[in-house]
Write a protein that binds this DNA or RNA. Structure first.
Lengths: 189, 189
DNA sequence: ACAGCTTCTTAAGATATCTTAATTTTTAAG
DNA sequence: CTTAAAAATTAAGATATCTTAAGAAGCTGT
């Protein structure tokens, strides 16, 4: 819980009372490695913060191949924002890649917090903005960079994640086959 | 200007006074076909609404190739949100593809509107959310769909745009060469 | 109506990436 | 520890997409 408060206070200020009210809205979920936090077809009703562990959001295409949209580790928010915002069924899954602890706030409860505590609303607006910015950057990179460059970028940006997830998932995140990533890596040595 | 008000009132309600205050914050820019509205390296200081015409946001990679991130026509918002939100230099250009009329609001002026008219702030939060959702959908599609599927999706979703922009720009938006798109189209007949 | 520019098509050869399948290495469970 | 499962590597052949180059078609301004 400390990590969550710290994460929010990093962007906006919260009084002690605000913090208390927030804490009462938060529930905690424990996940074993491989547990699914959000299933495809379910509506995402929670904003979710990773307190401990590592998760992925992924999609399955018509040929049954998995594609990873996002990784997350402690201190990150993870969600199917599309589903959360539109209240439509999620198009993919969110799964724990390690035993994990996730803190979540239900949409209805969060709306109440928004009206009581403006800085919470501001915090989430900023979060979505930075999510947008990150996604736009990723989109541009996938249009303009070679797979080797994308791998090197990933490495620089997310060394910590690269060390915690299997290489074939990094390949999936980058839109490559595991075999191709493996051979790319060989040429980099 | 009517189109702008209509666009906003489509999502949130505005009193006549609100509408007046908004109108005073808006300035209008006329562009000839091929004019650049935002240059790479410039900071985007305006939220921009297309009142008339057609524009594109595009990037140039290290090999000098252009990649289109977004098209826009009348009734759409177009911007380098990355630059606008972070106040960093834009990584790409925004250019008119037809003679166009763009309405814009300066960030400083918009911040004032935000504090005076909560529904304006709400409107832009919703805009960014739907921008995020659209971008996420695009990212997933580019990971999970074949180029043919992506072309057909584009066609369904943006028939109106396909008819107004050169085919090689559609190819660029889809991340294909014009030659490849041309041959894809042939197999579709 | 013409000239020049822009866009689209065609096709051949080059390159990047994937598929398949077998092998090795690493990790996790009993 | 041992063994089974998971992950990573290797390599060969297949496929998708790109590059280059040339020509055809379409549009635009004078």
């Amino acid at each position: 819980m400390d990590l969550l408060l710290q994460n929010i206070r990093n962007e906006v200020s919260l009084s002690e009372d605000d913090a208390k009210e927030l804490q009462q809205a938060v529930t905690s979920v424990s996940l074993k490695k491989k547990d699914i936090l959000l299933f495809k077809g379910e509506v995402s009703n929670y904003m979710r913060f990773i307190d401990q562990g590592c998760l992925r959001a992924y999609y399955i295409d018509n040929s049954g191949n998995e594609h990873i949209l996002q990784f997350g580790i402690e201190g990150w928010w993870i969600n199917d924002l599309h589903s959360y915002l539109t209240q439509q069924p999620a198009q993919g899954f969110i799964q724990a890649l390690e035993d994990s602890q996730v803190l979540q706030i239900h949409r209805d409860r969060l709306e109440v917090l928004f009206s009581n505590i403006p800085s919470i609303e501001r915090f989430f607006r900023l979060k979505i903005q930075s999510g947008y910015v990150a996604l736009q950057e990723r989109t541009i990179h996938s249009l303009t960079k070679t797979s080797e460059e994308r791998y090197l970028d990933f490495r620089n940006k997310y060394r910590n994640i690269e060390q915690r997830v299997p290489q074939y998932m990094v390949a999936s995140y980058l839109g490559l086959t595991p075999e191709h990533l493996s051979s790319l890596r060989k040429t980099l040595l």
